[in-house]
């Protein structure tokens, strides 16, 4: 099973994303509504990949990523940014932030799981 943590402050999107990712039977999906909660979860459940919303109140995506990297357990976990600000220049700047990829919102729910699998390979 591939463990996936999806972090987004929007509950509707979390639900749709979880459903979409679960279309791949090999995915074990958990969600978190904030960066802080994500840090709590990874303390006891280390995922294989983390999908991180960029714009979140409080701790945003890039700062969550920085905190994840500070911990030994998650220092090497691949991270994918999910963002509604899909301008190419921004996409590129996220790529430099130690993420393996960027997925633009709105994503295609039927192919989201496939997109993540492609990024992991």
């Amino acid at each position: 099973m591939t463990r996936i943590l999806y972090v987004d402050d929007e509950p509707d999107i979390r639900e749709v994303a979880e459903l979409s990712l679960c279309l791949d039977p090999d995915f074990d999906v958990r969600t978190a509504s904030s960066g802080a909660l994500a840090l709590e979860i990874v303390a006891e459940w280390v995922p294989d990949v983390i999908l991180l919303d960029v714009m979140m109140p409080g701790m945003d995506g890039p700062s969550t990523l920085a905190r994840l990297r500070e911990r030994d357990a998650t220092a090497a976990v691949p991270v994918v940014f999910v963002t509604a600000r899909a301008q190419s220049s921004e996409m590129q700047s996220f790529a430099t932030l130690d993420a393996i990829g960027v997925i633009a919102k709105p994503f295609d729910p039927m192919t989201l799981a496939k997109q993540v699998r492609t990024l992991l390979e």
């Binding site: 749709v16 979409s20 994503f107 729910p109």
Partner: peptide
């Protein structure tokens, strides 16, 4: 994203 995602599913 929510609407499109739900409808897509």
């Amino acid at each position: 994203t929510s609407i499109g995602g739900s409808l897509g599913l």
